[in-house]
């Protein structure tokens, strides 16, 4: 059964990708990119990659189509140019593809348990993580303790992206005095506002559940941050941008983004203070397993805060841009 599901999902993915490459209507391409995100997330689900499906759903099907749409709202939908340099593209793609296909011939078969990938480093994670770190979700224990430095890099990448978007779009002097008046920022009609009022509190509650449930089931700091931001994005979509600006002012969110990274960094430094290496939590509490628990919860919190605030910064800057986008004549 898994095989049928896997092959069906992959073929759907392929069809969507080829159509996106072929279509000229940008709006259709963005919509299909959303479907592409949904399909790849369900593929990850059928592969047993639960945390990854969670993240891909929140990001691939949630945030990136929304961002692309607000870019599209300013840049117009027509894709005028027919593909130029097609020959060069086909050539490079052909060469890369050929190299890859020859490489697959000697790959270990898909799913074979004795492939080298499963024999060297991975068995220890599965066997000893319960004893050493004491949480059932092995992915979170590898993510937050064995390879915690990678996750610190991940949080800093998100922080850099938030800063980059801020430096490009956010800091223009005239943001303050110009009122946000585009329909994208106006409250929408009655039904949506009622349903919005009903849904937003459970969404934020669910985000907190995902944040602290990260050790026992799928979830964790990053997914929780995205869902938390999606709650506020829904609020801004339904009740308009001014309403959100009143609750979440820009300076606070920027500071929170920096605070999240600092939390992560200082928890690592505590490892040094407690006489061990950087990012070693066993010294944080009485015995080492309790210390690992405490460390993982702290850094997941740091990740959640940074991701939520960066996603909010990016979305609010984009929709404020939309308001200003109206001033620029549409040359779509």
């Amino acid at each position: 059964m898994e095989l049928i599901l896997d092959i069906a999902l992959l073929s759907l993915l392929l069809v969507t990708a080829v159509y996106i490459a072929w279509t000229r209507d940008l709006f259709a391409a963005v919509i299909l990119a959303g479907i592409y995100g949904l399909l790849s997330a369900s593929f990850f689900m059928s592969m047993g990659a639960v945390d990854v499906a969670f993240t891909e759903a929140a990001v691939g099907a949630g945030i990136s189509p929304l961002l692309m749409l607000s870019t599209l709202a300013i840049c117009g939908r027509a894709q005028r140019a027919n593909p130029q340099r097609a020959l060069l593209a086909l050539l490079t793609v052909g060469v890369v593809g050929a190299l890859l296909i020859t490489a697959t011939l000697e790959m270990p078969a898909f799913g074979s348990p004795d492939a080298p990938a499963h024999l060297h480093v991975a068995p220890r994670y599965i066997a000893d993580s319960m004893r050493e770190i004491g949480i059932p979700n092995v992915v979170t224990s590898v993510l937050a303790s064995y390879r915690a430095f990678d996750t610190l890099g991940e949080v800093v990448v998100i922080f850099t992206a938030g800063l980059g978007v801020l430096s490009l779009l956010g800091l223009r002097g005239d943001v303050r005095e110009e009122p946000i008046h585009s329909p994208m920022a106006e409250p929408s009609h009655l039904v949506l506002r009622v349903v919005g009022k009903v849904l937003i509190p459970p969404i934020l509650l669910f985000a907190l559940y995902v944040q602290f449930h990260g050790e026992y089931g799928p979830g964790g700091g990053f997914q929780a941050g995205v869902i938390f931001a999606v709650g506020f994005i829904l609020y801004s979509l339904v009740f308009g941008l001014e309403a959100v600006e009143k609750i979440v002012n820009r300076a606070l969110v920027q500071a929170l983004a920096a605070v999240g990274v600092l939390i992560y960094g200082t928890v690592g430094l505590l490892g040094i203070v407690s006489g061990r290496n950087y990012l070693d939590y066993s010294g944080l509490a009485g015995d080492s397993v309790a210390g690992q628990h405490l460390g993982i919860i702290a850094i997941e919190l740091g990740v959640g805060i940074t991701v939520a605030s960066v996603m909010m910064i990016v979305f609010f800057v984009f929709s404020a841009q939309l308001a200003r986008g109206r001033a620029v004549p549409h040359a779509s």
Partner: peptide, 16 residues
Amino acid sequence: VFIFFTSPTAGHALAK
């Protein structure tokens, strides 16, 4: 419950 709320609303918003 979630589908109960969102699916008709999405349909309504789409038609509008």
